[in-house]
Design a protein around this nucleic acid. Structure first.
Lengths: 200, 200
DNA sequence: CGGAGTGGATTC
DNA sequence: GAATCCACTCCG
């Protein structure tokens, strides 16, 4: 049974960037009954290859099958037994190569430059790979991100054995006391400049 | 491996009633890392006869057995299939007789008086029973609370047949237009008095 | 732990 | 006084 009163409305709207939707939700209880809350959200990406029905080959069938998803499914996280990190493929970050963040209008941001001290590890790993690698490591990992701590020669010789899949594809970096001192000086200088700029 | 940092704290607390505990749990992952969830719970009742191990006789054994409960068990509510109201025993409210609410220091509140129009239904059902009956009906039931709608004589003759276990043990009450008018007048008067009391 | 939904402070 | 934003609670 659906009631006649419409309580939620969700629609695209000319003023918004593409695929963004405006939703009006009526407050139904409390001191503020009758007020309207506005929500803005980006609708699901329209990657037609990822939206059901999907034509795919499942190994138990002799023929490709078409998958219809009739119900929203959701994988539940097992909080009880701690954070289960999944095993990772060696060099899995290669999959992210060539991806670029973009703004709401779809324009890609400029590439970022990493400090020179970060040196790629492994064959065909370049600047472009390591930024994805380090960024995802910082985002995803629950352990300290150190980079590869194997020696340079061991990593070059038998990569598969010495490469740590839990660490990004950069050599470990040593930060000296001098480095820290230098950075502190830069911060102090920047603060002083700011203070002067704010003086009336 | 247990870390040195204490993430959970569970302790009794002066502001709480006896045996209640306050527990602070730190969120460890997710968007809300670092936030604290508070839980309040009553420590297990020290009824030694209810705390495992319990010596009891299970019908499948020839001999009494001792039950050890090694794991906390919990019954999950089925939210999906709607509110499953359990079947109720006729006159189940009798079990609540003699119970009294009390304040945090354990002093019982005075008995409440119900309006005279509320008349008990059934043998041995008195004032004390119907207040529990009506109160729990209002609290527990998901349907309108009307009282027993069987005729007085039918209820007296074959109680088991005419008594509605989903309704409290009081006769249904008719509210006349006059009753409503009288109540409206009382509210209007109370409002006027309040207004005058607030006048500067 | 996330998300829906509300209270309330803040801004215009 | 309305619109907006943010914090917080509660429950699945």
């Amino acid at each position: 049974m659906s009631s006649i009163t419409i309580e939620k409305t969700k629609y695209e709207c000319a003023q918004l960037p593409k695929r963004w939707q405006r939703e009006e939700v009526l407050r139904k209880t409390g001191l503020s009954v009758g007020k309207v809350d506005l929500y803005y959200s980006r609708g699901v990406r329209n990657d037609s290859s990822l939206v059901p029905p999907i034509r795919q080959t499942a190994s138990i069938f002799k023929q490709p099958v078409t998958v219809y998803k009739t119900q929203e499914s959701k994988v539940k996280t097992d909080y009880k037994n701690g954070n289960q990190e999944k095993p990772k493929q060696l060099m899995w970050e290669k999959r992210l190569e060539g991806l670029r963040a973009c703004d709401v209008d779809g324009f890609a941001f400029e590439a970022m430059e990493l400090p020179k001290v970060l040196k790629p590890v492994g064959p065909n790993v370049n600047e472009d790979t390591i930024i994805q690698s380090v960024a995802t490591a910082l985002h995803v990992s629950s352990q300290p991100v150190t980079g590869q701590t194997g020696t340079k020669t061991s990593l070059e010789k038998i990569l598969v054995y010495f490469l740590d899949p839990k660490q990004p594809l950069v050599h470990a970096v040593n930060i000296s006391d001098d480095d820290i001192k230098r950075q502190e000086d830069r911060v102090a200088l920047a603060r002083k400049n700011l203070q002067e700029a704010l003086r009336p």
